[in-house]
Each structure stands twice: as structure tokens, then as C-alpha cells.
């Protein structure tokens, strides 16, 4: 009888442990991190388990290596799963602008985000496509469509929480006016 109780405890308990572990892991960057804004672009696919989502791409989703400071080794192959770090400059409103791509974690107080290549690449290819796990925003179908309209006008920012290790979680989308450019072609903050 004692064994049976233990067995029932295992049968019923392990799924809860898995579920709680998953939630804690998902919530950690929000709990321990700070909140920032990232400008985004979009698409609208469907996930079979979770429904409609807006597929987002960011400034860092496709980077031309000639146009950014980086310390990648030219002949090394980087693949999905390798950690790369993106450094940002934050303006007064908390909006981030990409400044550097690095293979090493930056030291605080730099704002940096952990990302990984979407496909294998060598820096000699000049282009890198990165993903940071922030590319899906789940929403009801009607809302998803509305977000896409706004995205096409370039007015959407992603509200993200980034922790001290560069792990991030997308917490929402926000409507903002896109940054205006001054006559020198630089963005006004």
C-alpha cells in the first residue's frame, strides 16, 4: 500500500514538477530582468498547439557584418545553438539600438541580449541571421491582424525583459511613432 501511494505520488507529481519548472524558467528573465523596447517588423502564421502569432523580425534578425562592430572569427562556422551577444544603446525612453555583435558576454552595465544563428554561417559570408527567442507574439487572430497593420507602418515596438545573462522574454507589443531622422540622416531620440 505504501508503495502504491508512492507510485501515485510519482504519477501525479512529476507532470507538476515539469510544468512548474517550465513556468519558472519562462518567468525568470521577466522577474530578474529590466524592461526595454525593440523596434519590430512582422508576419502572421499559426502554431498548431498555440494558435495565431505575429512573427517578428528585428534589426538584429539580419545583420550585414560590414556595417557593425563584431569580434567573430572569419573562417569559423557558427551554427544554431551557439551563443552570440548583441550589445545595445538605450535611449531615454528605453528603446534599444544595436551597437555591437560579440562572442563574449558583456559586462554590466551594458545592455546585451543573447542570440543564436538561425542557420550555420561563416563571417566571410558577410550576412548573419540571428534569433533570440523573441520572434513570436501570440495573439487572438483579429488582434494579430491589427498588429500586422501597425507593423507595416513601422509603429510597433516589442516590450522585452532582459536579465543579466542576456536571456530575454517578450512581454508585449507597443504602438509608438517611429524615430524621426534629422537632416544628417541620424535618428532623433
Amino acid at each position: 500500500m505504501k508503495n502504491k501511494k508512492l507510485l501515485i505520488l510519482l504519477l501525479a507529481g512529476i507532470p507538476w514538477l515539469v510544468l512548474i519548472g517550465m513556468i519558472v524558467n519562462a518567468y525568470l528573465p521577466i522577474f530578474t530582468g529590466r524592461s526595454y523596447l525593440l523596434p519590430v517588423e512582422a508576419r502572421d502564421p499559426r502554431d498548431f498547439f498555440r494558435g495565431n502569432y505575429v512573427a517578428l523580425s528585428y534589426e538584429f534578425s539580419r545583420i550585414e557584418l560590414d556595417k557593425i562592430v563584431h569580434d567573430l572569427m572569419p573562417e569559423k562556422e557558427y551554427r544554431f545553438g551557439d551563443s552570440l551577444y548583441l550589445q545595445f544603446r538605450a535611449d531615454r525612453g528605453g528603446a534599444l539600438t544595436l551597437t555591437k555583435l560579440s562572442t563574449e558576454r558583456m559586462k554590466s552595465p551594458a545592455v546585451f541580449l543573447k542570440a543564436t544563428p538561425q542557420h550555420s554561417f561563416r563571417p566571410a559570408d558577410k550576412i548573419v541571421e540571428l534569433t533570440a527567442g523573441l520572434e513570436s507574439f501570440f495573439a487572438p487572430p483579429a488582434d494579430a491582424l491589427a498588429w500586422e497593420d501597425a507593423l507595416r507602418q513601422g509603429r510597433v515596438f516589442a516590450r522585452v525583459s532582459i536579465d543579466h545573462s542576456g536571456n530575454a522574454r517578450l512581454t508585449g507589443l507597443e504602438l509608438r511613432e517611429p524615430a524621426k531622422k534629422n537632416p544628417n540622416g541620424e535618428e532623433d531620440n
Binding site: I30, T131, S136
Partner: peptide, 27 residues
């Protein structure tokens, strides 16, 4: 698991969600 992944907007590519599901079923 999938609801939490939706709430936290975890990327649509989420093999770990399926793996956690199977591991939760193992007992």
C-alpha cells in the same frame, strides 16, 4: 505547457515544449 508557452510568447520553434511534455508523461 503550450498555454504557458503562449502566455510567455516563447518562440514558435519550441522543441523543448514537446520534450517537456514527453518527459512529464514518462512516469
Amino acid at each position: 505547457i503550450m498555454l504557458q508557452a503562449q502566455i510567455f510568447h516563447i518562440s514558435a520553434y519550441y522543441p523543448n515544449g514537446v520534450l517537456f511534455w514527453v518527459i512529464g508523461m514518462l512516469p
